[in-house]
Simulated assay, not measured.
Amino acid sequence: MQYTGVLQKMQSELGTPIQYYLVFENDFLNMNQVLNKELHINFIKFQCLNCGRDRTIYRQGFCKSCFYEIPTAGDWIMRPELSTAHLDKEDRDLAYEKKVQLQPHIVYLANSSNIKVGVTRKTQIPTRWIDQGAHEAIEIVEVPNRYLAGITEVALKDHIGDKTNWRKMLINDVKDENLAEWRQKLRAYIPEEVADYFIENNTETHLDFPVLQYPQKVSSLNLGKTPDFKGTLKGIKGQYLIFEDNTVFNVRGSEGYYVGLTIS
């Protein structure tokens, strides 16, 4: 089977295990069905996810000029505390920013390699946790806009991490934690204006990833340096493909790369 198209982050569907899909312009591929098969990835060209041109990808699947111009790559995406739509103040495109920022957001705890705090739109639960390779997660607060979620995350980062150790996540060097207890410990550090949005009695969500064999160590595939790769797929976790030879490939980190895929 052969497929061609520009890489974007895999879409996922909660299940036991999670189902993953690579979606191209005119086709899609259920990646779970490729487990234990040889996958040949061939880098053909760049294709910016915004302008569609063959320009070197800078960040988040965009060429450099698009990254610094389009509203979907504003600083508030990565740093939600910089959100200003609730003040009616524009960053790049106020209409877009209101649409995204002025909707319910969740501050959560997720455990992938270690416990971390994070922010996402309510509509992105549990997708955000899946993308991070978290095997368990729990909501802390639900707020009406991105700014309130951002300042909560900033406050909690002084007491718990906000980064995932992707290598530990991929070799499955993780331990279970009582996230409900952690939530109660952190409650005292939530900003006063967010205190009323604290979630009291929900339970952890547990996630089951389709992995047949975890790597003992990881070697990261960079299509810019290795444009032609073959390997037997053994697992999918977060946005990574895990191969039999310990190679791992970050699909989301390669957004904007136009590739050919052959499955045998």
Score class of each variant (00 low, 15 high):
Q2L: 11
K9R: 12
L14W: 00
T16L: 15
P17K: 13
I18Q: 07
Y21E: 11
D27Q: 12
F28D: 14
N36S: 12
N36Q: 09
K37I: 09
E38G: 02
I41W: 06
T56S: 09
T56E: 13
I57K: 07
R59Y: 00
Q60E: 03
C63N: 03
F67H: 15
F67V: 10
F67C: 10
Y68N: 13
W76R: 03
I77S: 03
M78C: 09
L82D: 11
S83C: 14
H86L: 07
D93H: 09
L94A: 02
E97R: 04
E97L: 02
V100R: 05
P104C: 05
H105R: 03
A110K: 00
S112R: 02
N114S: 12
G118L: 05
Q124V: 02
Q124L: 11
T127Q: 08
T127W: 01
W129D: 00
G133A: 14
A134L: 04
E136K: 06
E139F: 02
E142D: 09
P144M: 15
E153Y: 01
L156K: 01
K157M: 13
I160M: 08
N165D: 15
W166Q: 06
K168D: 11
I171N: 08
N178L: 10
L179P: 05
R183V: 08
V194R: 08
D196G: 14
E200Q: 09
E204F: 02
D208Q: 07
P210S: 11
L212M: 14
Y214F: 15
P215S: 05
P215Y: 03
Q216G: 13
S219A: 12
N222I: 00
G224S: 00
K225Y: 06
P227I: 01
F229K: 13
G231E: 08
T232G: 03
T232N: 10
I236W: 04
K237E: 05
E244K: 14
F249H: 07
F249M: 10
N250F: 12
V251Q: 05
S254L: 06
G256K: 05
Y257E: 10
Y257N: 13
V259N: 08
V259R: 05
G260T: 05
T262W: 01
I263F: 13
